[in-house]
Structures are given as structure tokens and as C-alpha cells.
Nucleic acid binder design. Structure first.
Lengths: 163, 163
DNA sequence: CCGAATGGCGATTATTTTGGTCGGATTGCG
DNA sequence: CGCAATCCGACCAAAATAATCGCCATTCGG
């Protein structure tokens, strides 16, 4: 249905958090999960993948956790999503490994791949820096201003999440 | 994984075929299915939905079948996909019916909905006419997909959060 | 009237997604 | 040193979703 999985959502949330709170040092998977009400084990696996893909660096031991490996302005949403879900194709008869049974007859795959490329393009131009909601920052690409009052400021208000 | 379901693929293939062979009169679901190696019953349901959505007209009885209801240049891929799969959301915590458990904490949904809109935009500009014969069909000068700079401009549109 | 075709719904199976468990390795702190 | 916090990786189970198939009613054409 043309949607991202929850894993990708979780990953983006995590990366975004790390981008916004980079100054606070490493953040453990457990903390991230509790902060956003995400099952710990699920998120743990996701950030592990992100670390394996060199998007995050992990720090083991007490007070360890994860930190962004690069500048959030240089990490695209596409990279995050791909690290978690693998290469994305819009067509179900994916063109990568093997052709589907209709391969020779599938007449729409090629036009749809152009759509796919366009989507990748959009996602590759969206940096995790811009995922933070106060992204009034305007990179050289131009445009993309966000008025503060248009945004839904979702404030973490101290309470206990999850259990 | 950000991909269309097979149903949508099938539907696009069928619609495309009807667009290309409009002169041959009605085409039955069975013929379509055999032609492209699609399970008959699966395709039958799909074209039924397309007919219900007024994208195709059905002709019952012997030598019946389906015909495009409108000019293929006026039917967008988005219409076809939506008729088959319903409204599409890129976020898994879809904003339509109910908010997900992380609703109040989901910090990336809004930026991603902008991406979603862009995708819909691309798909709404891709007509089934353009699906025929690969690609070099450029109706409007400057490429029929969204222009690059148009894509970067991801506009904040006040927008619908939750309901 | 009969055969062929669509219409519509349900049922079953396959695939994906999701969340969880376990045992282990590594690091830092007291 | 030893313990606790943390990351790591594989394996697994339940839930959700998608894909396919089947049945019967209806409608059309000869």
C-alpha cells in the first residue's frame, strides 16, 4: 500500500532524536524506546542495523548508547530507510534479483521505476536534520521554510512513558 | 518497504492494456489474465473494483469484457492505485482513522506526510496513456514527471494530523 | 432456454511484519 | 576484580496483511 513499515518509522524517530539531542551524548536504545513508547527489542534491532550501516556509532558498556556517525545534515531519510528495509522498489515484481513470472509481460514496470526513482530522489534530499520540526533552516537547495506556528510542537512533558 | 502490492501492479497492467488496445473493443478479465499470466480470479476482482470506481465500464454477457471509461490521457496512475488499494499513506501510523499509540510522540509523521504528498503528486501526473510503451512519451515539455526543483520544495501545509 | 460472461462475497493459504527471547561479548564503575 | 549496564546476533512466535481460489447469483446473447 505504498507505506513505510513501522521499523522505518522507528528508525527515523530515533535518528531524528539523536540529531536533535546530539549535545547530550550517547543515548541508549532502552532510553530511546521508553521515550517514544517503542518496544525495546524492536528498536534495539533497528539501531543495531543503523550502526552496522555506519549511520550511527555505538558505545558499549555502562552509560553507553548511540550517537549519529555523521552530521545530521548529511544523512538522508533514504539512507536511514534503506539501512533498515533494504533497497526499496515500488514495483512488487522487484527488478533486482529475479524477475517475476510476468517479467516478459510486465509492461508497467519500467514506467513505474521512474516513479520509484523520483521517490528515492525526494527521500534522498530530505535530511534527518530537516526531520526535526523546527527546521527553519534553509539549505542551499532553496525554499522550504517552516513557520513555527504551523508546526505541532510535541513536547516531551516529563511523564513516564510505557510502563 | 514502500512498494505497491501486486494487486496494484495487476490493475495497472490491465488498464494499460486497455489503453493500448482500446480499438479492439471489450476485453474480458479472463483474456487479460491469460495474456499477462495473472491468476484469473485475482484479476477479476481487481477489474471489478476498477469498474465500480468508474474507471472501467463492464459489459456482461458473451463477448463482454471491460473498456476504459475515460480517455487514457485523463486517467492517472494514482486513480487506479487508489481504486484498488484505497487511500495510500506513507506513514504506518496512518493519519486517517486512528492515531497510533505513539501519536503524541511521533515526531516524524508530519515531515513524512509531505513526502507522501509529493509521491501522490507524481502518481497523479502519470497517466495511463503514458504507461503504454515504456517512456519516451513526453506530453508537456520539460519532462512529464515532477521537475527536480519542484520536488525539493516540500511545502508545509498546515495539514491534517490525526483526526 | 442454455451457455458464456461478469458481480460479489467469503474462505483459505502464503507472505510479511512485528515483537520477543536467549545467550553472549564488551565496557565502565565501584 | 566483579557486577551491572549496554550492545550484538541469531532464532522464534504471534499477528497482520496480501494473494489466491471457490462458490453462487445475475445478466446477456443467440
Amino acid at each position: 500500500m505504498l507505506k513505510l513499515t513501522k521499523k522505518a518509522d522507528y528508525g527515523l524517530i530515533a535518528v531524528r532524536h539523536l540529531a536533535e539531542h546530539a549535545d547530550l551524548g550517547a543515548c541508549s536504545a532502552k532510553d530511546l524506546a521508553e521515550m517514544y513508547g517503542i518496544p525495546q527489542e524492536a528498536l534495539a534491532k533497528i539501531v543495531q542495523r543503523l550502526a552496522r550501516s555506519k549511520l550511527l556509532t555505538s558505545q558499549q558498556g555502562t552509560n553507553g548508547g548511540y550517537v549519529l556517525a555523521r552530521d545530521p545534515r548529511e544523512i538522508s531519510a533514504l539512507e536511514v530507510i534503506r539501512a533498515i528495509e533494504g533497497p526499496l522498489f515500488i514495483t512488487s515484481c522487484n527488478s533486482s534479483t529475479k524477475a517475476c513470472s510476468q517479467s516478459s509481460k510486465c509492461t508497467v514496470r519500467e514506467p513505474l521505476q521512474k516513479v520509484s526513482r523520483t521517490i528515492e530522489d525526494v527521500l534522498s534530499k530530505l535530511t534527518v536534520w530537516e526531520l526535526r520540526e523546527g527546521s527553519e533552516e534553509a539549505p542551499a537547495a532553496g525554499g522550504h521554510l517552516v513557520r513555527e506556528d504551523e508546526l505541532v510542537r510535541i513536547e516531551v512533558s516529563g511523564g513516564n512513558y510505557g510502563k
